[in-house]
Amino acid sequence: MAINWNIDPAHSEIQFKVKHLMITTVTGYFKNFDLNVETENEDFSTIKKLKFTAEVDSIDTNNAQRDAHLKSADFFNAEEHSQLRFVGNKYVADGDDAKLHGELTIKGITRPVTVNVEYGGIVVDPYGQTKAGFTVSGKISRKEFGLTWNAVTEAGSVVVSDEIKIHAEVQLVKQAVIVAAA
């Protein structure tokens, strides 16, 4: 028996942060994303499958000109690479904290990535839906995924840092139980 969990997009957000001119941080979001998790039971240490996707065209940094630049060939090249994808392959829990290991694909380049996961628990909402909550955080090198555009200021500082911080608040909704054929 397996349990399928889908993301509740109204109660979830996928965020990234990057240093600009190495003095401030710019925050961006993916507005369109999907996550499906299959577990053996309600204990998430039994994750069998995990697949996350985000639509590159849904990037929002609260600045239309910057968003267009991020979607261009200088960065994500949304025209050729419309999604980024993370496929989890190992979940190691230690109490309410865990490490999620998987393969992240951005701009056609796949690399292993490990993120930190804080398990918030399971509750039944006022509508009878069983929900599970998580906070996910991690860091990646954008250059490892072919996101290499940069510029240098007159003083020699880079415009965009290599390190990207990832933060997600995720709420999953339990779906119908899947009964495996014998």
Rank of each mutant, 00 (worst) to 15 (best):
V160R: 03
D97I: 07
E55N: 07
D96N: 15
K17E: 10
A98R: 04
Q129E: 01
V92N: 04
K131M: 10
D97M: 08
T130H: 01
E38Q: 15
A64R: 12
V173C: 06
G108T: 08
D67C: 06
R142M: 15
I122W: 05
P126T: 08
G138S: 08
V170H: 02
L84W: 04
V26K: 03
S141F: 00
P9Q: 11
Q83S: 01
A151V: 09
S157K: 05
I3A: 05
V136A: 09
M22D: 12
F33N: 04
T148I: 12
E169A: 11
P9N: 14
K19Y: 00
V56P: 08
I164K: 02
V179T: 12
T110E: 08
H81P: 00
S141P: 02
L172I: 11
D74E: 03
D94A: 11
A98W: 03
T135K: 15
S141M: 10
D34C: 11
A155K: 01
Q83N: 07
V152Q: 09
F33G: 00
E169Q: 13
F44H: 04
E79K: 12
S141Q: 11
Y127Q: 13
E169N: 15
E38T: 15
L147F: 09
G88E: 03
E79V: 11
I14N: 07
E80M: 12
T153D: 14
Y91V: 13
D57M: 01
R85G: 02
Q175P: 04
H20N: 11
D94K: 02
S58F: 13
D125Q: 07
D57N: 09
Q129L: 02
N150V: 12
L35E: 05
A155S: 09
K31N: 14
N150D: 14
D96F: 00
V117P: 05
D8H: 02
S82G: 08
V92E: 14
T53V: 13
F134N: 09
T135I: 10
T25C: 05
K99S: 12
R142L: 15
E169I: 10
T25N: 12
P112D: 13
D34A: 15
N116W: 03
F75A: 12
E13L: 00
D60R: 05
E118C: 02
R111V: 15
K17Q: 13
W5Q: 06
F145N: 11
G133K: 04
V136N: 06
I140Q: 01
F134W: 03
P9C: 07
Q15F: 00
G28M: 07
K143T: 13
V92H: 00
P126Q: 09
T39F: 03
E42G: 10
L50R: 01
R66A: 09
L147R: 05
V152R: 03
D43V: 11
S12A: 13
M1S: 11
A181Y: 01
A155N: 02
A2V: 00
S82H: 09
F86I: 10
M22C: 09
S157P: 06
D43C: 02
N89K: 13
T130W: 01
Y29D: 10
